[in-house]
């Protein structure tokens, strides 16, 4: 394992995230894809902290992802609540049938 391997993993995860976001039609699946992209970013963060040259300050790089995970779960809870509310109102979670942005 080295920094390149970590960054490659992150890049692959991020690409999967984009691919999922662009191809999935269900909103929940898109949410999962977003989560994937976010985690790719967090891997970058941790990897840079771990492989930092000696003497550099690594505290922020290792602690920040924990905060982000916490905040993201809260965010996801809100997003799920929105999706549930929308489903109750519209009976649809297919993104291609939600075309209201066009007006």
């Amino acid at each position: 394992m080295n920094l390149t391997a970590c960054l490659s993993l992150s890049a692959i995860l991020f690409s999967f995230g984009i691919f999922g976001l662009m191809t999935r039609r269900k909103i929940i699946a898109m949410l999962l894809a977003i989560e994937l992209m976010l985690n790719a970013a967090l891997i970058n963060c941790v990897a840079f902290a771990y492989y930092a040259p000696a003497g550099a300050d690594t505290d922020v790089g290792s602690i920040l992802p924990i905060f982000i995970v916490a905040i993201t779960s809260a965010e996801m809870a809100v997003a799920l609540a929105v999706i549930v509310a929308m489903y109750r109102k519209r009976k649809v979670i297919d993104i291609e049938r939600l075309e209201d942005l066009h007006d």
Partner: peptide
């Protein structure tokens, strides 16, 4: 391009 398809918007954004 402005057809209300979120995927299109996302794609353009990316």
């Amino acid at each position: 391009w402005q057809n209300g398809q979120t995927h299109v918007y996302l794609g353009l954004m990316i």
